[in-house]
Write a protein that binds this DNA or RNA. Structure first.
Lengths: 152, 152
DNA sequence: CCTCTCTAGTTGCATAGTACAACTTGGCGG
DNA sequence: CCGCCAAGTTGTACTATGCAACTAGAGAGG
């Protein structure tokens, strides 16, 4: 195996290890907002409101899963649904004020934790690491399901 | 926010996105070996055999979770338990031949998928990316639970 | 030798996230 | 009007997970 292969191997192992830990510790920090809820809210903020089907497609989730998550988030008052006047089958999802606030809180406390962990990294390394991750995830998002599954 | 903060923000977002997708697509590639089982087997291979408690500590899992996973892996014939002759409370876990084989297969097909996604990366970037991930995860492993949860 | 305490692991119970399949509702083209 | 497709919901089942209660064995102190 050449050097590039060894690097790929390491990247695979470390990304897997990270993914493995992520869920294991999910929710310990923010019991009121699970990893799933957090990412859904984040996408709603980014997109400025979208359909449940869009969320399902974006995260490769079943629409039933999204439906239940959306129901829970609505019950919690973090998002609201509005029936699309153009097509009554469609529900446009939007963050409520409370949802926006909580999302910001969680994002902030997560940012603090990440900063702590990355405190002793030189700025140049941080930038490069960030760029690599963006590049990697961009490729992953455009890849077919099988390739996405490799991240698991 | 300065440049370093922006990088931290990006790292947080991208790591989270990755983690989010990882689990969602887990198992689609290798139905016979879940993400959890895969990482446990991987650790057994690396360590050359260890206790259930070691696995739990390494992955920040409850010992009951590990116990069940181990039971399943043993039933599947991928690992075997031997009672430590020095301490009858302890079970030393080891990969069986079948376990070693399947682990190698899955690792290989995952490696192929990762290589595909990383195909157009220069070797130098691969090496740096790999090094960053190792560094990041090493910090995560030694961090307190709260900081680990930030990866979720 | 007996007891107390600690450790390793198992099991009972509850919960979250997920998928798949069946169903409901509504839009669209013949 | 009819048949078909698309968006969501609901029923069901399964996996991973944690916590708490338990069992079994090791070690220390009397």
């Amino acid at each position: 195996m050449n050097a590039a292969d060894a690097s790929v191997e390491t990247i695979q192992r470390e990304m897997t290890a990270f993914a493995r830990r992520a869920r294991a510790s999910a929710g310990r920090m923010h019991p009121e907002l699970s990893l799933v809820s957090y990412t859904l809210l984040g996408h709603l903020e980014e997109s400025g409101g979208c359909r449940a089907t869009d969320l399902a497609a974006h995260y490769a989730l079943d629409k039933s899963t999204v439906s239940r998550q959306v129901t829970a988030l609505e019950r919690a008052g973090l998002i609201e649904r509005q029936v699309d006047p153009e097509d009554h089958r469609v529900q446009v999802l939007r963050l409520t004020e409370a949802g926006t606030r909580i999302l910001a809180q969680v994002t902030e406390s997560r940012r603090i934790a990440f900063r702590e962990r990355l405190a002793d990294w030189p700025a140049a390394d941080l930038e490069r690491f960030a760029a690599y991750l963006v590049r990697y995830n961009t490729a992953a998002a455009g890849a077919p399901p099988a390739a996405q599954a490799s991240g698991s």
